[in-house]
Each structure stands twice: as structure tokens, then as C-alpha cells.
Design a binder for these strands. Structure first.
Length: 541
DNA sequence: GTATTCTGG
DNA sequence: TTCTACCAGAATACG
């Protein structure tokens, strides 16, 4: 049983503050003897692009840690960091940490880029249990049986809303005796987590994706976040006014046609106007909370029946979405220091192994509509000597499915280089590719996407606005024409039932606890996850 | 804080 | 018989 300091088994702990140059040099000499060094940084904020370094902690042995305070005098802090240069320059070191991307980004702002490899305990837990929670507090309690000092004890709770709410204090103002305990403990705990996770990575057979994908990716993401991207603020300000005006026009038109003014941004109020007052659909569906559904798919069906008010509602929705989520939000996220926007990538968030992006989310910038696409013009090169280059896989998920399933017809279609949806339509409708109509291609495309997600006849019918009979016919033909795909889906579900997980080409596993559930719905979800997850990760090289 | 909606892959 | 396409982040309304 591993032990963590005083509170667990009364094992003595030694957390030492190291402040003078002489003591720091002695610490560096001690750390030089070790290949694996656990480290953590304390900072003034939670945004690494804004944060100031308050201190660094190190540990190489459970129960022992050093804390090196970094003063507000930035020149002195750079001097201190300079003393660590021999360690950071050593390519043989392995830097252990929890969410190392954050600490490395903070260090990069001070010009420090460690040469050694990374062992990130957060990423270790991510590949061991992709859908669990993994804050350090929770990992410590779960794997070490120890509840760490809460940060609130040092700097108070996060600022609540309204007057009188206390704002969270700064790490900068905490006295060294307290911060030493907190920071030392973080490095200590993280080192012990590493010792727990390392054998687990072997047992679960996920070292490949951990060593070859996740850990090397950390430094790449640090570079990307640090670099950021330039935003044309003036362009967005102009566009905001245009959207404001056009949204207002659509809004007024809605009120005029409805014969009543209300909050158009409220789905609840809109539903009551459309279905109680105007009675546009006597069989309108309600959500589980009892209000009418007013999502885009519902509104599009009303529009198809010639309700002109719905066009204006859709326009209002589109324009206000663009304005509030992108056009007005992006300029506020420009970093005053760099004049650029720096997203934060979530490397251990999505259960499928994909990245996530926030503050701002740069993975959902509009592209489908003309007025949405316009927003992309605001992302510009740093100067006239640079340009932005865009590269994208073509149909990567379907290619992965073709490769894993080895379906001869699907592989042949990709090898021939023809449009995959046209090729699919030709097979499903049994016509030459030249005779595939737009309609046929559109439906085949929907089937191709639906297949990846485990969609059935009901979903396809709803999506395409066709009968369930027709949808079933299309799907049956699809399965007949691409027998390898059907076989792959059957095999995948069977594999999941027997093993309790599915895996990607890189060896990332997703555990499916409900795959053998007696509940049809619950089991169905797990089965669709089983089919869906493996197609999400390309094989590198 | 939860629900709904909409943006992307 | 059942409910119906996976994975995310963010804005807004509303209690």
C-alpha cells in the first residue's frame, strides 16, 4: 500500500522551501541524479497564457518534495529559472506531472522548454479510464486513499455572482509556509499516482497509445496554444452591426406575423406562440419538461408546409447565434499581451480520444452557411509575409471503416478515387455511377454517415423525410452491397460483449459497461458506441 | 444548475 | 416492444 504523508499512515513527510541561490543550486545537483522528476507549478491564475509563476515544486521520492518560490519580481524569477537550465536542457530527463500541458505552457512564456520526455498522470488515467473524472483531488482519493489540501483553504472560493461576493484570492498572497505544504503535496501525490498508473497501463495494454500518441502530443499542443492566431477585430465589429440589424428585421417580422411581441430568444415562449396561439401543428411534440420542441428540424418541417413566419424565426436564430457565440465573443478573447487568440485544447476530455477546444472553441467555427462562413475571414495571417494554409483529411472516418472492415466494394471505391457517396448510391440503387442523381447521392451520403453512428431505419427515415419502408430498403441494399461493413459491425459488437471494450487502431480502448444490459435502450446506446468509437482514430504513419 | 438550441467533426 | 445517430463547447432562458 502506497502512503502519502501525515494524514494517511502517519508516515513522516518533508516538504522543504528552497529560496537562496546556494540552496537552489544544491537542489538542482540533487535532481541531476534522477532521471524521473515530478514537477508542478503554482501560478496567479488558471489561464496559462495570462498566469504569472508563483512557485515550482519537485519530488523524486514519495513523502519528499521541494518548493521553490518565484517572486513577483519577474527578473528575479527568470534568474531562478536560469538555475534550473541544466535540468531542462537534459533530453534524458522524464518530467512527470498532472496536466503537464499547463505547466509547460507557463514555462514557455518564460522561455523555458524542457528537452526531456513527458509522463502525464492525467493522460495516463485518460487512457486507463477515458470516461472517468480525473482532477488531482479525485485521483488522489481514489488511488491513494488520501484527501489533499483544498486550494480554497489557501485562496478562498471562486467569486460568486452579485454584490458582496468574495473574489478568489491570488496564490501570490499566500504565505510560504502554507503554499509549501500545498505545492509540495501536489508534486508528492503526482509522483505516487505515476507509480500506481504505470503498472495499470501495462495491465490494460494501453501503453502504446499513451507513449506514442498522448505524451508526445503534449509539447505539440503547447506550441499550438502558445502560438495562437490573429483575429481581425475591425472586421468582426463591422459584421456584428450588420448581423444586429438583420436579426432585428427578422425579429420584428416575426412579431408582426404573430400579432404579439414576446422574447423570441425563449424557446418556451416561442413554442407557446407557434402551437397554442397560431396552432401551426396540432400534434406538436413536447420535451420531457413539458414545453414545445422548437429545434431547427421541427421548424424546417413547419417551413416546408408554407409557414412564412418560420423562415424569419430561423433567420433570427442563425444570426443571433453567429453574433453572440462568435462575432462578439472572439474579440473579447484576444490576449492583450500577444494581440492574438489562444485556445486551450482539452487532451483528456472526449471519451473517444479526440481533442476538445475551449476559450474559444476553435473546432466549431461556422462553415455550412454563407453568413456563417463569413466569420472565417476574421482569422488572418500575422502579417503580409505569412499566409494561412489549410489541410484536411477527406472522408477519414469512412476510410477507416473501409480499412478496418476490409470490405472489398468500399475499399475498391476509395482506391478508384471516385466520390464515395456517388459510388455508394450507384451500388445501393443498382445504377451506373453516371446515372446517380443528386437525390440518390444525398440519400447515400446520409446512409454512409448513419452507418458510422449505428443509425437504424427510423433515424434514416426521419433524417431524410422518407418512409420507414423506403429507409429500410436502402439500408438492406447497403448491407447487401457492402457485406464487409455489416460483418464488421456484427464482429465489433460481439467483441465488445465478450471483452467489455472496443479499441482503435492505435490501441485506445473504450470500456462499455452496458454492452450486455438487459435493457434494450441502454444496450442499444452501448452498441452504437461500440460501432462508432473505433472509426474515430486514424492509424498514424 | 438544468434544459434547450446550435455550431463543428 | 422500444425509441430511435456518435462526440464535443457555448449562449440563453428560467427556476
Amino acid at each position: 500500500m502506497l502512503t502519502v504523508d501525515k494524514n494517511i499512515n502517519n508516515v513522516p513527510h518533508t516538504y522543504t522551501a528552497v529560496e537562496t541561490d546556494a540552496d537552489i543550486k544544491q537542489l538542482v545537483n540533487e535532481l541531476k541524479k534522477h532521471t524521473e522528476i515530478c514537477f508542478d507549478s503554482e501560478t496567479t491564475g488558471i489561464d496559462a497564457n495570462e498566469a504569472e509563476l508563483v512557485g515550482l515544486s519537485f519530488s523524486v521520492k514519495p513523502g519528499e518534495a521541494w518548493y521553490v518560490p518565484c517572486p513577483a519580481d519577474q527578473n528575479r524569477t527568470k534568474e531562478i529559472l536560469g538555475l534550473f537550465e541544466p535540468l531542462f536542457a537534459d533530453p534524458k530527463k522524464i518530467w512527470i506531472g498532472q496536466n503537464t500541458k499547463y505547466d509547460l505552457l507557463v514555462l514557455k512564456w518564460y522561455g523555458i522548454e524542457p528537452a526531456g520526455n513527458i509522463f502525464d498522470t492525467m493522460l495516463a488515467h485518460y487512457v486507463i479510464e477515458p470516461d472517468g473524472k480525473r482532477s488531482m483531488d479525485i485521483l488522489s482519493e481514489k488511488y491513494l486513499g488520501y484527501e489533499p489540501v483544498h486550494i480554497e483553504e489557501l485562496i478562498g472560493k471562486k467569486g460568486g455572482r452579485g454584490a458582496g461576493a468574495k473574489t478568489q484570492g491570488s496564490m501570490r498572497d499566500v504565505e510560504i509556509e502554507k503554499i509549501k505544504e500545498y505545492a509540495g503535496e501536489d508534486a508528492d501525490i503526482t509522483l505516487q499516482l505515476k507509480q500506481v498508473f504505470e503498472p495499470m497501463l501495462q495491465q490494460k495494454e494501453v501503453e502504446k497509445v499513451f507513449n506514442e500518441v498522448e505524451n508526445p502530443l503534449v509539447k505539440v499542443l503547447v506550441d499550438m496554444e502558445f502560438e495562437g492566431i490573429k483575429i481581425d477585430e475591425g472586421f468582426l465589429n463591422d459584421y456584428s452591426k450588420e448581423l444586429e440589424k438583420d436579426a432585428k428585421t427578422a425579429e420584428e417580422s416575426v412579431y408582426k406575423q404573430a400579432g404579439v411581441r414576446f422574447n423570441l430568444a425563449s424557446p418556451k415562449q416561442l413554442g407557446e406562440v407557434l402551437f397554442d396561439k397560431l396552432k401551426l401543428d396540432p400534434s406538436a411534440k413536447k420535451t420531457k419538461t413539458g414545453q414545445y420542441q422548437t429545434g431547427e428540424d421541427v421548424l424546417l418541417k413547419l417551413a416546408a408546409r408554407g409557414n412564412s413566419i418560420v423562415e424569419d424565426i430561423l433567420t433570427f436564430r442563425e444570426l443571433t447565434k453567429l453574433k453572440s457565440t462568435y462575432v462578439d465573443a472572439l474579440p473579447q478573447l484576444i490576449n492583450p499581451k500577444t494581440g492574438r487568440v489562444h485556445t486551450t485544447y482539452g487532451q483528456a476530455v472526449a471519451v473517444t480520444g479526440r481533442l476538445a477546444s475551449n476559450n474559444p472553441n476553435l473546432q466549431n467555427i461556422p462553415v455550412r452557411t454563407d453568413r456563417g462562413k463569413e466569420i472565417r475571414k476574421a482569422f488572418i495571417p500575422r502579417d503580409k509575409n505569412h499566409l494561412l494554409v489549410s489541410a484536411d483529411y477527406s472522408q477519414i472516418e469512412l476510410r477507416i471503416v473501409a480499412a478496418i472492415s476490409a470490405d472489398p466494394n468500399m475499399c475498391q471505391a476509395f482506391k478508384a478515387g471516385t466520390d464515395i457517396h456517388t459510388a455508394t448510391a450507384a451500388r445501393v440503387y443498382n445504377v451506373p455511377e453516371k446515372e446517380v442523381t443528386k437525390e440518390m447521392r444525398y440519400k447515400a451520403k446520409s446512409v454512409n454517415f448513419g452507418i458510422i453512428y449505428g443509425q437504424g431505419a427510423f433515424g434514416l427515415a426521419d433524417n431524410l423525410g422518407i418512409s420507414r419502408t423506403e429507409a429500410k430498403e436502402i439500408i438492406d441494399n447497403y448491407k447487401k452491397e457492402f457485406p464487409g461493413i455489416q460483418q464488421y459491425m456484427d464482429n465489433t459488437i460481439n467483441f465488445a460483449r465478450e471483452n467489455g471494450y472496443v479499441e482503435t487502431l492505435m490501441g485506445r480502448k473504450r470500456w462499455l459497461r452496458d454492452i450486455n444490459s438487459a435493457n434494450f435502450t441502454v444496450r442499444g446506446f452501448a452498441e452504437r458506441n461500440a460501432i462508432n468509437s473505433p472509426s474515430r482514430e486514424p492509424l498514424l504513419i
